[in-house]
Amino acid sequence: MLSISGVHTFYGSIEALRGVDLEIKAGDIVSLIGANGAGKSTLLMTVCGKPRAARGRIVFDGEDITIKPTHEIIASGIAQSPEGRRIFPRMSVLENLQIGATTADPAHYDRDLERVYDLFPILKERSNQRGGTLSGGEQQMLAIGRALMSRPRLLLLDEPSLGLAPKVVQQIFRTIKEINEEQGVTVFLVEQNAYHALKLAHRAYVMVTGRISLSGSGADLLANPEVRAAYLEGGH
C-alpha cells in the first residue's frame, strides 16, 4: 500500500533520513520504533510531504506522492495524528472533528462522526467542550478521531502514548487495534513505547540514526535479544 524506497530527508545541512526503505501492506499495523532523534517522526512527516524527501520515492497505492503538496497527499487517503496531538485548543471537540473532515465527502460526514463517537464515547460526551480543556488521554483520542474523520485508508500515528498514564496507554492501543481490525484501516505507528508497539504490530521496523537497522514481524522483534537490550529491558 505504501512503499518508501531510498528516502533521504534534510533539515538544512543535517541529514535526518539516510536512505530509508520501508513497506506497508494493506490491512497491517506496522510499527516503527527507535530512540529519540532517530528520525521516526521525520519519516512520518516526509510521507506527508513536509519536509519533502530530497531523494528517494514514496508510492501510495501505486501513485508517486513524493513531490505532491501535503493537502493532496491527505486527500488521497492518508491521515495523520501528529506528534504532540496538536488539537485546536480553543475550538470545541465537535469543531475539531469537523475540521478533520475537511478533505472528506460531506455525504458520509454523519456516519463518520457516529463511527468516531462509537470508538471514543467520551468525545461525544465532551463534544461541546473546548479541546484545550480535555485531559491528555482525551486529547489523544480527539487527535485520532479527528484523523479518522477524513476516512483514511492509511492512518499515521506519531507517538500516541506520549505523556499518558499506563492505563490510558493500554486503552489507546486497544482502540488502535479496533480501528485496524474492525474498520480495516491500515496503521503506521511510530512509537517509543516499544513493548506495546511491537506487541500490536504485524510488521515492525527499528530505526537508528536515520536508517532502518532491523525489521521483522512484531513477535520476532519482541523476542530479538538486541531489541530487548536496547528498547525493552530498561522500562518494562
Binding site: 503538496p69 496538536r86 469537523q98 475537511t102 478533505t103
Partner: peptide, 20 residues
Amino acid sequence: GRAWEALREDEIACRSLGIN
C-alpha cells in the same frame, strides 16, 4: 471559516489534516 480559525490555532495541524 472553520479552516480560518483552525489556521489561527495551529498551522501545522491544519496541514496534517489536508487544509490548503
